[in-house]
Design a protein around this nucleic acid. Sequence first.
DNA 1: TTTATTCTTGAACATCGTTCAAATACTCCT
DNA 2: AGGAGTATTTGAACGATGTTCAAGAATAAA
Lengths: 226, 226
Amino acid sequence: MTLEHETVRARIIAVTLELMDEAGLELIKARTIARRVGVSVGTIYNLFGSVDELIQVANSHILADMNKLGQISVADSENELERRIDAGDIVDTPKDRLLFRLFALAKVYMDFVEDNANRWGAMLAFNRNQPEGSVAGWYLDQQNALFDLIGKVLDATPLGDEKAIRIVAARALWSAVHGIVTMNYVGQVSEQSRRFTWEQVELLVKLFVAGLYAESENEQDEKPQK
Amino acid sequence: MTLEHETVRARIIAVTLELMDEAGLELIKARTIARRVGVSVGTIYNLFGSVDELIQVANSHILADMNKLGQISVADSENELERRIDAGDIVDTPKDRLLFRLFALAKVYMDFVEDNANRWGAMLAFNRNQPEGSVAGWYLDQQNALFDLIGKVLDATPLGDEKAIRIVAARALWSAVHGIVTMNYVGQVSEQSRRFTWEQVELLVKLFVAGLYAESENEQDEKPQK
DNA sequence: TTTATTCTTGAACATCGTTCAAATACTCCT
DNA sequence: AGGAGTATTTGAACGATGTTCAAGAATAAA
């Protein structure tokens, strides 16, 4: 019984994600989902309460998927980093290590958005349409988990001792990359727009890191003078 | 007649923006607008074709307003900049001039989004819900006008000779600030979130500029070596 | 004034989210 | 097995929404 429940629940979520891939939020209607799953509209309301809550559950799966990919990438790119350093491909400095790690994270994010363009766009569109307070707690939690991915990478960084500044930096960098990617993917995802978007992300991350080390040197210069 | 037309047209647009301020897109319905303006639903369709097209017209007014504020700010902050330099408040270097100009632009943007939170959110929500190709040409034009605001400021910058890199930088920086601001304004706009958001914008712009000059020095260092 | 043209109206239609009484399926006890 | 009790599923029905368009009202032309 509960087993069957979970099956139907899972199928409804899967179909919702399917329909998101096909046309963003356009096909996400109670009747459309019910027809494709093979149940009645009432079942959706019994299991999820409302279509909006169903979409929220689907969205949490999307964020979880991205999170998982991020975790994997962090581990993988660490191995790749050592390999490149051993091969003399990358200079072994804290700055170049940081750059490599941030590029890897940014690439994972961009690839995910490209590979799941409609799905990702549906999630953003839905969240924007929700009234202020109604954003579920776990949504913010999952968003913070993504921030933490960058936060951990920024730990090895000349950002001062306080944790606060690192959080600010992580959120700023993540939001910035997010802004660039979504701003450029308003419409079609062509090879040209892909390249153009990556140019912007690359420049931003490069300047961010370069600025980080330049500023830290300035601080070192100034203190001895006093 | 045409005079009366323009009056009704203008009133419909004004009421649409009013309703956006009150509750984002929630109250933007043909019947709600018609009732408040004092006409029938049919009139809206006669003058605008559809509710979506009406919203697009309203959105273009929002972007135009922001553009105008940006233009004014660029002129004003130029005077303010000279005043601060004369007062010895700011060091007269290209880098500090650039920083001041970019901070001024970022502040205008943040203030506008705060002062028109619901209106701005409605515009973003609507654009995200539109199918790909249907983004009107003038919308992209007005967006490009905003990029140009930054692009002109970046002209006085060590970014290499090609215009292409400057366009990339302008889009990257603008989109980054946009990302930070919208990411932080998911819900309420409190004094705390305001400060937190500005911290991120400030850090990003500061590192972007610092990185810009650090990288240009590196290039100068490298070339003589060869 | 009469005719022609243009604009406005709001009832009507299709579609959406949502509800809930009735039907169905299932569990458990005798 | 049978029946009573419980849980789940169903889909017709309701209100709200975007949109249409024949009929009416207003205006211009004659």
